[in-house]
Nucleic acid binder design. Structure first.
Lengths: 220, 220
DNA sequence: ATTTTATTTTAGACACCCCTAAAATCAAAC
DNA sequence: GTTTGATTTTAGGGGTGTCTAAAATAAAAT
C-alpha cells in the first residue's frame, strides 16, 4: 500500500489522536490537528478508507485499521530516528527538530532507515523521551519514576503528576515544570530527600521530597 | 523565490543540460532528462519563466537566468552533501546514493544544510568526484591528472582522455574504463612507469605508462 | 519556394489536495 | 417528538503536475 505524503500525514495524525482517547476520532479533531478544514478531512477520509488504512462510518468518526497502524508507526519511527540524528549528530536543540523531521520522515528508503538506525546505535527513545517503534511497529514503553528517585545528573522528561490538584498544577506552572518539560537532577539532599533540578536547560528549581515524589518522569 | 519540488527538479535538469553544451536547451532534451512528455515540459517552462528563473522564447529553447542558476546550484549543493553523508556515514555504496539524495535534496532547511556541511567537515567533492558548490554557489574545479601521476592507493574518477582516437576508445571500452569510472591505483612499476589499477571496484587492469598518461582523472 | 518532417505548443482531461458555501445528518434541548 | 445547534458531508471550484491528441511553428529536403 503506497500512501502520498499528505495521506501519510493524515494517517499519522489519526494515529496520534487515537492513542489519546480510546474512542474513534472526529473529523473536527483531525481538521484541528492538521490545520485544514473539515471538508478537506472528509475528502481525505474517503481516500484513506478506500486504501483500507482506516475504517470509517460517515458521521461517526474514524478508527485506524491494523494495517493503518503499522504504516503510521513506520512514519513515527522515521520521524523519531531523524530527531535523534538531528540532536545527537547535528547538534540541533531539542525544540528545533520537529519541523525538519516532519519533512525527513517522508523520505522513501527502507535501506536508509535501516542504516540510520544502526548509525545512531539503535536508539529506543527520541530526544523528547518518546519511544521509537522498531521496524515491526513494536514500541517499548518507558517506566515512569518520581523524580526524587532519579539519580543526580540523570536527565528525563516530565510525563505526568500524581497529585493533579489545582494548587499543585499552579505550582508546576510557576516553576515552569509543565508536562513535557525536560529535567535534570542537579543535587539531592540526603537529609530530607529534597532535590534541586534544572528545568528545560535553563531554570533551577529547588523542591521538597513530597513535591518531587509527585512528579513523574521518564529517564533518558 | 520559492519553487515547488517539481520546479526544483526541472530547474536542476535545465542547469545540468546547460552545463553540457553552451547553447540553449531544447524542450525534447528536458523531457528526456525528466522522463516526461514534451507537452508537460512546455507547461513547466511557462511557470519557470513566470518565476524568472529561466528565460524562454517559444520554440527556441531555454536559458537559465543568474537567479535560476543560483537556485539550481543550491539544489546541487544539497544533493551532493547528502551523497557524502550517505557514503561516508551510512556506508552506502557509491552507486546506491543517487535516488535517495534525489529525495533528500528537497528538504527545506538552511540550518540543516549548514549543520550537515559542518558535520561532514565541509567536503568540496561528492563521492562521484563532482564538486560541491558552496553556499554562495561557487564551485571549485578539481585539477585533472593523468593516472600515471597518481600515487599508489589513491582513488579517483576518470573524467577525460587526451588521445580520443577510435583505437584508444576501443581499448578504454575493452578494459571497462569508461568516462566516469572510478579507479584506484594498486601498483606502480618504477622501472617503466606502468601501472595496475582497480576499475569500478571490481576489475584489475594493467597498463603501460603511455596508456596511463592518456587517461585523466580527478582525485578523491 | 514549396513540401515534408521534426519539434514544440495548446487544448482538454484527470488525479491530488486544498478551499468556500450549501446541504445533510446527528445530538441535545425543549 | 420537534426544533435547534453543532458536526459532517457534498458540490463545485482552484492550483499543481501529468497525460494524449491535435494544432502551430521551425527546420530540412526537394
Amino acid at each position: 500500500m503506497n500512501l502520498t505524503v499528505a495521506e501519510e500525514n493524515y494517517l499519522k495524525a489519526i494515529y496520534h489522536l487515537s492513542e489519546e482517547g480510546t474512542k474513534s476520532v472526529s473529523t473536527n479533531d483531525i481538521a484541528a490537528e492538521m490545520k485544514t478544514k473539515p471538508a478537506s478531512v472528509s475528502d481525505m477520509l474517503r481516500k484513506l478508507s478506500e486504501k483500507e488504512v482506516i475504517s470509517y462510518r460517515k458521521y461517526y468518526g474514524v478508527n485506524i485499521t491494523p494495517e493503518g497502524k503499522k504504516l503510521a508507526l513506520q512514519t513515527v519511527r522515521k520521524h523519531r530516528l531523524w530527531e535523534v540524528f538531528l540532536v545527537e549528530k547535528l547538534n540541533f536543540a531539542w525544540d528545533e527538530v520537529h519541523e525538519v523531521a516532519e519533512e525527513l520522515e517522508h523520505i522513501q528508503s527502507p535501506l536508509l532507515i535501516q542504516r540510520l538506525d544502526a548509525y545512531l546505535n539503535y536508539p529506543k527513545f527520541d530526544p523528547h523521551g518518546d519511544p521509537i517503534p522498531d521496524e515491526f511497529g513494536d514500541v517499548k514503553a518507558r517506566p515512569r519514576v518520581p523524580i526524587n528517585e532519579m539519580e543526580v545528573n540523570q536527565s528525563g522528561q516530565i510525563v505526568a503528576v500524581k497529585d493533579s490538584s489545582a494548587a499543585f498544577l499552579r505550582y508546576m506552572d510557576k516553576v515552569g515544570a509543565y508536562i513535557g518539560a525536560r529535567v535534570k537532577i542537579l543535587d539531592k539532599v540526603e537529609f530530607d530527600g529534597s532535590v534541586e533540578i534544572l528545568v528545560d536547560q535553563k531554570k533551577n528549581v529547588f523542591m521538597s521530597k513530597d513535591v518531587a515524589a509527585n512528579i513523574l518522569a521518564i529517564q533518558s
